[in-house]
Every structure is written in C-alpha cells, then in structure tokens.
Design a protein around this nucleic acid. Structure first.
Lengths: 346, 346
DNA sequence: AGCGGTTACTGACGCGCGTTACCTGATGCC
DNA sequence: GGCATCAGGTAACGCGCGTCAGTAACCGCT
C-alpha cells in the first residue's frame, strides 16, 4: 500500500501558487500565460513530490479516458492460432502511444459478449472490434448510439469504418501465381468456415482468378479449413480422396501446415507433385520444409491503421468507410512448375 | 457523440428514491437492508434508462480501477516471435474476468520504459511485468513503494512475487530424453542470449542433465540463439562447422525451426542422423516435418497463475515469492535412437 | 402513553481534477 | 490624471459516485 497520494494541491502549496496554476502548467496550456519562472517552480515542486495526476479524476473532470479498447471477438482456437495477432496488437499499441493513449484488451469468452459497457461506462474512448460477427446486437446498438467504433475485418451493412486486408486481391495473387506456373487443377482450402467474411473473400479471390483464366470452378476441389493445422490436414485428405490435384491454395499458413502434412502422408512431394501457396506469411513460413510460398498480410500495419482510424473517429473527424490494405506475394520453394512442364523445360 | 449520460440521479428520480439507495442497490450491498420491492423498482428504472455506472467516477470515489496492467518488457522481435504470448494473455484475461477486472496491455518501445505511471496515476490496480530486466530502475521503485507487482519470468533479488515455468527441470527433461535414447554428443542452442534468465536456466538444465549422466560439458557444442528462426539457423551452422553431433537440444521451438533448416541444408536427416528436441510446444510443432519432440510450456496456465497472483497481491494477501509451473515432455518424431543403436537393435 | 429498537431511507461530504469567471495591480495611452 | 488594457493569478463550481451519519416512521412491549 503506497503512501498517501500526492495531489495537485500539494504541489500548489509547495510551489506557492494555486491549484489552478498547477493544472495549467501540468496540461501545458498555451492559451494561458504562465511566466517561465512560475512554470519552473511548479514543475520542480511536482518533481520533488513525485506528483502523478490522477487519471480517473482527470477523466471525471471532463476529460477522456485516453484508452482504446480492443475487443477480440474471435473464438479461443482462432485467437490461439492467429500468429499475427501479437503483431497487430503491436501496431495498435504504436498508434495509441503516439497519441498518448493506452490499449485495453478484452478477450471474450465464447458465450458472453459483454463488451459494450467498456464504452458506456467510460472506461474506453473507443472500441476496435476484431472479427466482428453479424449476430451481435450490442455492436449495432453501439454504432447507432454514436460511439466511436472501428472494425478490424469486414461486416457489410454496419455503419462503422472498417479496416481489412484486401483478401480478394490477395487470394487472386496466390492463384494467379499458380496459374502462371502452368497449374490447372488447383485445390482451395479455406482458412475458416465461410460464415467468416475473410474466408469467403479469399475463396472469392480464388474463384475470380480461375474464371479470369477461363477455368471452370470445380466444387470438389474446394474444402473448408477451420483456423488450425488439424483442419488443414483433414481438408487436404478429403480432397485427395476424391480427386487429383497439381496445386493448392490454402488460405492460411497455419492451415497450410496441416495440408502439407497430409500431402506428405499421402506420398506427394511439394512442389514436385503438388505446389502449395499459403496466406498470411507467419514468421515461420520461411523456415518450413519446403519454405512456403505465401501472401503476406501486413499485420502490424493493420493494427496501426485501425488504431489511427479509431483515434480520428474519437476526435470527431471523418474516417473512410472501408480501408483495404494491400498484400504481397512472397514466392518461396513450395511452388514450382507442374510435372509435365518440368520435364519439358530442360 | 452519444447523448447526455444517464447518471444515478436520473435512476433515483425515476425510481422515486434517493441516489444513495440507487448506489446501494447497484452495488448489491448485503449489509444494507433494501426491501425486494424497492430493489426491483430501482433495477427496473436503471434498465429502462440504460444506466451504466461511470467507471472513473466510481474509482474516484474511493474504488479501484478494476484493471490489471500487463507490461511487455520484451523487445519487438521477441514479442513477435513469441507464439505463446497470446495464449498467456488469454489465461490472464480469464483470471481477470472472473474477478471482474480488465486487462490493459502496455507494449514498450525499446528505448522508453514509461510504465510506472500506469500504476501511479491510478489507471491500473496492479502490474504484471513480463520479461523483467535487471536494468530497470522504475520496477525497483514501484516495488519499494509497495505497489502490487508480479513478475512473469525471473528476476532474482527483487522483492516481488514471480511466476515462471520450471526452465531448469524442463531442459533436463529434454536432455535426459536424448540421453535415454543413447545419444552422447548433444548440442545445445539457447533460446536467447544468456543475459535472459530463461535462457541461462535452460542451459543450466542441459548442463545438469549431462553432469548427472557423467558426461563432460563441451563448450563447442553450445551456441546462442536469439528468439527467432534465423538465429537458430546460424547457431546450428556454427556448431556443424566445428564438430559432429548426434542430437541437439534447442531451447525454443521457433529457434529449432531454423536449426532444422540448417541441418537439412547440411545434408543431415532428422531423426536418422541427428535427433532434435525443442522447447515451448508451439501449436505448429506437431505439424512440422518431422513433428517436433519438445517440452510443453503451459502458456495459458502461466497467464492464469500470474493473474491470480496479482489479484491476491492487490487484495493485500500474501503471495508465494516464486511459483514454478511444471513442464511436460512431448515425444514426437524428431527424436530417435542414434545410428549405431538403430543398426544394433533389430 | 412512553420508550427502546428496528426498518427504510436520505442529505451532504469528499474523492482529484479541469475550467470558468473574476480579481488585482501594473502598464500604456491620450 | 483618468481610463482602458493586460499579465498573472485565483476562488469556486461541477464531473458521478460511495459512504457516513443521521432521521423519520413504525413496531412491540410494559
């Protein structure tokens, strides 16, 4: 138990000024004239007493909480598997720090979705909803009531700004890479069930790329993954049981890891027999065997962007409805020309 | 901008009682007698108006912030590479939720270490320092001033409770597994520079296991890793250049991934030529090729334990100085008997 | 009727701060 | 000299809440 707190009154007494003056100095108000000598006296007194303005009192007196809330709407498995979440958090923290804000993280248990009162109780100035879900009444209410809310991820039909990676374009990048190498029977394993917008968008990118190349989309080439490696293993096994493929686009590196294991077990070599492209570019992708060709998702930048957007919104300024961050294809060794082409080239 | 906030006075007016009564009802105080009818009237009024008690006001009036601070003292690369950090955060959030607390995450930029005022300004009730460093004057000051602080990780000599995994025992588990298989020239690649206690502890476990087996510790078998896969690649390459090995204990799965890549490139097969044991059991370890034998670090439990410890400390109760969580060896396919033994066994 | 005891409730204060409106003495200007 | 201006500073209010010290009404008992 720390000793009695030092208040601005203590500082005022020691500096021989009023509390008001202390407040002016501490907040560095430029519209009030304080002679340098007085300012120095106050600062010296504050320093000597170890004065730290009380945050709640400050907020109560009309200020803001200087806190951004990050709500992780995802399921536990999803969060655990998200290797880039920490990086996104770092980006967000970066944006927050520059604006002298803190970050409060609220991870939701599957059942309960109580996060609105973070905002309504004044604990945070705004909220970032990561992985918004359409079956979320609280969210719609918050937006309707005019609270600053920014979505990380997509949720069409909600009147809140959203920041997301361009999933469609990224997936197209991946599939076009495979097409360019000469592959034609390209499987697709989604990163998650299709109720998740990111999953359906990446699938849409796959479909678009095929159609642009004049290739019919064959549904038996498509299987659903579910965040983790085991789901990728299952999905790839299912596909291999029902058809032959010469390449696969797996919309998540983590899921791709499971798919790679399934390919190995079925006796296929990557990329000699089957080329594989992932999505996300988790830090480990470069060190897999073979190193994984993948689509880089700018995780830190997402956090940074979503943070800046929320800060703008809090400041009452206008924010773009939808910000799509670009992805980049990272070509490594898990993709190569198909068997036929390889034999023909030398 | 949401409309004017609903205060307890509004609720009081609607319910036809005083603000004091509203406060009693909202806080569910059992020591004050409130007839069921009155209680219901108040709750109904609160419900109707959409009343949410103002957190800062509540705190100012003598309450607590109901917030735990998690300070990530690690470097950016370290945080990014820590695949289990999210899981630890989840555990912490779990502990916090059960006690109706929130979690504030403070990620420090390399240079600046301003986190003490989270506590001194009353923004959090307590702090968890993850990856404490001895060159941290703020930390010592906080502890001296009696603020509730709990360390995740070790820092000998500081009078604050700490929660950590039993690194020494875990490393011994790993090395004894290799010894049991018949390996004798066992390399060790640390998870980080040795100034990090976790790194030196794991190295100590390696040393102990060898000494107990009556094997001299050969320094040319030891190399330093540094959090990420590339460092593991470098370390393993260095070792392979100067000697032959038949097994390796790599004190971090992520670093091990780099080491595995280096072994592959040097033409060694795992586990036929060299057995490898990792540490951490990140979610992907089971899906590597070969699946990695490793030491499981109970990430979620660490978060949970450190959270509970901090809550106890905040409540003014006594907390164990040092809590060491046990690890478990997870045997997968990256370890096997040495070449000689394999030939002799059938 | 008188009295202690209980039940149900309330008025007023203080938490620490930001801020508005006001005050005082010195200076400038005609 | 008289008035306006301005620098430098302050007293007092309110933010929304928890809580203490009451108070008024009512009950049971003699």
């Amino acid at each position: 138990m720390p000793g009695r707190r030092v208040t601005s009154a203590d500082v005022a007494a020691l500096a021989g000024v009023s509390r008001t003056t202390v407040s002016f100095v501490m907040n560095g108000r430029r519209d009030v004239k304080i002679p340098a000598t007085t300012r120095r006296r106050v600062l010296a007194a504050a320093q000597e007493l170890g004065y730290h303005p009380n945050a709640p009192a400050r907020q109560l007196a009309g200020g803001a909480s200087q806190t951004l809330g990050l709500v992780l709407r995802q399921s536990p498995e999803q969060v655990a598997g998200d290797a880039l979440l920490v990086e996104t958090l770092r980006g967000l923290a970066l944006a927050a720090r520059d604006a002298d804000h803190r970050v409060l993280v609220e991870t939701l248990a599957p059942g309960d979705g109580r996060y609105a009162n973070l905002l309504r109780s004044g604990r945070t100035d705004g909220l970032i909803i990561s992985g918004p879900r359409s079956d979320d009444p609280e969210l719609a209410d918050l937006v309707r009531d005019g609270f600053p809310v920014v979505l990380q991820g997509s949720m069409p039909g909600l009147a809140a700004p959203s920041v997301d990676v361009d999933n469609v374009a990224g997936a197209r990048l991946a599939v076009e890479h495979l097409l360019g190498l000469g592959h034609r029977r390209i499987a697709c394993i989604t990163n998650a069930p299709l109720v998740y917008t990111a999953a359906s968008e990446r699938l849409a990118g796959y479909t678009q790329a095929l159609q642009l190349a004049g290739i019919a989309v064959d549904r038996i080439l498509i299987a659903e993954g579910g965040f983790d490696a085991p789901s990728g293993h299952r999905a790839m096994s299912t596909i291999l049981e029902r058809t032959e493929i010469d390449a696969a686009f797996v919309a998540s590196d983590v899921v791709a890891l499971g798919a790679l294991a399934a390919l190995r077990e079925a006796g296929y070599t990557v990329p000699a027999d089957v080329s594989v492209v992932g999505f996300d570019d988790i830090p480990l992708s470069a060190y897999l065997d073979p190193p994984l060709t993948t689509v880089r998702l700018p995780a830190r930048e997402i956090g940074l962007t979503v943070g800046l957007a929320l800060l703008e919104k809090i400041a009452g300024r206008l924010v773009a409805d939808r910000t799509l961050l670009p992805t980049h294809l990272i070509v490594r060794a898990s993709t190569g020309p198909p068997r036929g082409a390889a034999e023909a080239s030398p």
